[in-house]
Every structure is written in structure tokens, then in C-alpha cells.
Design a protein around this nucleic acid. Structure first.
Lengths: 240, 240
DNA sequence: ACCTGAACACCGTTCAAGT
DNA sequence: ACCTGAACACCGTTCAAGT
């Protein structure tokens, strides 16, 4: 009994919103988005779940606070750079922040309404396009083209962390070559000669995510640059 | 009591996997992804939740079955078309399927492992690139560029269904013009002269989603076409 | 003023029991 | 063979009660 009281008083900094958010981010960094329950966060603070409700209105508000903390880690735009460099570097900074907090993209997606911090970030990204000579209209389309990439993440349709060892995965896809010939070709190409270095399961985390992210990013930025200096602001195939 | 028995026997087609999936899709179409609980689906079938477990292993398997049902609605690729047309039309077909089942994109994202049906769909999309003359490498990058668009959806960072009336939204953003000048400019541009037709809250569902989807799609397809016939397979800014 | 216990209305899932 | 009731281990959240 005495021990329990000691444990509690040991952590008796008075449980502020700030401390709750810090703890929640730490819990998520360690255990992923699934570990984010009010009871779990409270436990980490040596407190009961209902105690949190004096400092945050509800779980959604807590999640918003966590999102804002991550967005706050993104570097401000480079001063004096051209729009493309400014956009590219800031998106890569956002990506670094998101990679430090792997739960964040999922939490951002789960929230219906953007926080004021995210709205502000978006507005500042729009400003980079406008300063770069984009019309308001083309800036609008550009924001849709970029989508979540503007926040540094993209939808990965296959799980990034395949539990299977690379060589097993390669063998598996080879066996399925008649059913999925193109995936098999892809796995074959990438694994190439040296199966030893873990690039095996192309479809399950074997690819170089950073390269693919930048490849797609540059394709989009190059496409937008072309439209920016083109007579007609729509790509050829567009039907409206 | 007699009434209750009557109600039950009325729906006594013997509760197959097929019937469960059909009902689950109907429940989700009506109530969204949040309404997809085992208890809720069972209730719709006049049965108790635990009865479902004789026909599906668990909820994840049920979700996979629902996903496959939606993927099954996507048209096969057009025969004899060039790769760009084939890709474009099939993605737009996928989009129509996803729009018929608005819960599907969220459910697909929530699942870590792709179903065999999705893997097959991906392989067939890869085949369109390969047949169109893409190298295996460029096809790989192309798949990453397209991302979830290949399944007909894209990450919308703002909620598409804003509860606010268009004119209220316009007034709101006008008032926030000093804090978010670029968003304000955007809303101002789009609302233009006629506020009456509901294009108001650009940042909350006021934009033409179909146009933006096709705009981004075409920008990507055009960019890929350029790389396909270029000497070096990487966009200019790429650092690897 | 700040935290807690008990409770409510939900989840997915297991397992022994009913027909 | 097929379905059910009770139970377990979880959720977010409310509200009256404790200190």
C-alpha cells in the first residue's frame, strides 16, 4: 500500500495537457496507433483514464493535439528558393517528421476535420505555389495532385513491414509466377543476382521507399512545372 | 413469442458466407464503415453475432470478402487499346466502383495484407504497363507513382462532405483571409460571381472531385509516358 | 480543484451448452 | 450441424462521489 502511494507521488507533476500530449506521442511512437487508448495513456501517467478528461475534451481532441505536435516538427520553407526547391524540400522535411512518428499518417487520415495547424500548413504550401507564379486555379489543381504527399506520406497499398524473410518471399512469388506473372517479373528483376541483401519482397517492403517517394514527387513537380509555363493549364488527356 | 419465431423462420435461408457478405455490403453502403460490427450485421440477418463465426473465420476475413466483392465490380481492361487508354479507363472504372461503395477505400486501407483478388488486380495493371512497352523497372516506379489511384481512390485530406452551407463557408474563409490568405483567395476565385450554385466550400467538398481526380491522373499518365520514351528513366530532380 | 469508482453502451471473440 | 447465452477482455465516456 505504501509503495503504491510512493509510486504515485513520484510522478506528481500536476498532469497538464502538455504532459498528456507528450506521453501520448511517446506511447504511439513505441506501440503504434493501436496502442492509443485513453486507458493506456492514463496508465503511463500513473493515473486513471477519466482523469484525462479534465485536460482534453475527448479522444479526438487529444489526437488533434498529437497531430499538431508532429506538424510542428516540419521545417519552415526555405527562404529565397524557387517554388520547386521550396516545395520539394519542405515535403521531404514533412516526410522525415512522419517517419519519426509512424502512427501519424494513420491518425491524420482518421480525422475528418483538419486542425488549424494543418490548415495553416496547407495555406503556406499554397503560398509557395502562388509565389512561384501559379494561378489560383492551377495552385488548386496542384494541391489535389499532391494530395497527402504534401504532408509527407503516400498510401502504400501493401504492408511495408512484411514478416517474411526476403529469400522466402522471392521463392513464394517465383512459385506464383503463372498466376501473377508481372509481380514475379518484378521480384525477379529486383532480387537480381544477390538475394542476400534484403531487397527481396518487393511487394512487401523490399523496395527503396525513399527513392520511390522522391521519384513520384519529382514526376508530379515536373508535371506541374510544365503546366505552369504552358498556354493551356490542363494536361492533354483531360476531359473535364 | 410466436411472433418472434415467425420472424426468424421468415429469413431462414440457411445463412451462407455469400448471404453474410451480401448483407455486410448492404449494411456498409447504408451506414458507412463505422456501422460494420459483427453484432450489427448479425442483427440484419436476424441472427446472433456468434452465428457468423461458422461461416467466416473472423471480422478481417469478412472485410476481405467485402473488398473482393467491390474489386469484382471493376471492368476488365479494354482489349486492343494503347496502355494509356487502358490504364485510364480501368482506373476510372475502379473509381466508379469505389464511389458506389464509399466505405471501401477506408476498409482497403485498414487491411495490412492485400487479398489475392487485389494482388491479381495489381498484377493485371502491371501487365498493362508492360504491354505498353514499360521496362520492369519503370513499371515498378509507375505503380508507386499511381499508388491508391490504381484502385480508383486518392487521399482527400479535407472531409468531402462539409456540413456547412456553401455561403456560410465562403463567409467564414473571407473572415479568416488574414490568417489563411491563399485558401481565402482560392475560395474567392471558385465562388466567383454566383454564390448560389453550391461550389462554395472549396476546402470542404465544394470542388469538382471527378475533375480533380482526372486532372491528377492525366498529369501522372503524361509524366509516365514521357519517361517511357525518354533516354534516362528518372525525372530530372531525383536524387535516388 | 483535481482525481476516482462504478457504470453504461459498445467492441471482437471463445467456449460450453442447447436444439 | 447449426445456432445461442454467458462470459472475457477490451473500448470511449458520464456522473456522482471522494479527498
Amino acid at each position: 500500500m505504501a509503495t503504491k502511494i510512493d509510486e504515485r507521488s513520484r510522478t506528481r507533476e500536476p498532469l497538464s495537457r502538455e504532459r498528456i500530449l507528450r506521453t501520448a506521442v511517446a506511447v504511439a511512437d513505441k506501440g503504434g496507433a493501436e496502442s492509443l487508448s485513453m486507458r493506456r495513456i492514463a496508465q503511463e501517467l500513473g493515473v486513471v483514464a477519466m482523469a484525462l478528461y479534465k485536460h482534453v475534451a475527448n479522444k479526438d481532441e487529444l489526437l488533434d493535439g498529437m497531430i499538431d505536435a508532429v506538424i510542428g516538427e516540419i521545417d519552415p520553407p526555405i527562404e529565397g528558393a524557387d517554388w520547386k526547391t521550396a516545395m520539394r524540400e519542405r515535403i521531404l522535411s514533412a516526410r522525415r517528421a512522419l517517419l519519426r512518428h509512424p502512427w501519424a499518417s494513420q491518425v491524420i487520415e482518421s480525422r475528418a476535420e483538419p486542425t488549424p495547424t494543418i490548415i495553416g500548413y496547407m495555406d503556406s504550401m499554397m503560398g509557395i505555389f502562388i509565389s512561384g507564379g501559379f494561378s489560383v486555379d492551377l495552385m488548386h489543381h496542384a494541391m489535389h495532385v499532391m494530395g497527402s504527399r504534401i504532408l509527407g506520406f503516400s498510401q502504400e497499398l501493401f504492408d511495408e513491414t512484411s514478416s517474411m524473410p526476403a529469400d522466402e518471399a522471392i521463392a513464394m512469388w517465383a512459385q506464383l509466377a503463372d498466376r501473377y506473372p508481372n509481380i514475379a517479373a518484378l521480384v525477379g528483376e529486383i532480387s537480381g543476382g544477390d538475394i542476400s541483401h534484403d531487397e527481396g519482397s518487393v511487394v512487401g517492403g523490399g523496395c527503396d521507399d525513399q527513392f520511390e517517394f522522391e521519384f513520384a514527387l519529382d514526376l508530379m513537380l515536373d508535371g506541374l512545372e510544365r503546366l505552369r509555363s504552358a498556354p493551356t493549364p490542363q494536361p492533354a488527356g483531360s476531359t473535364g
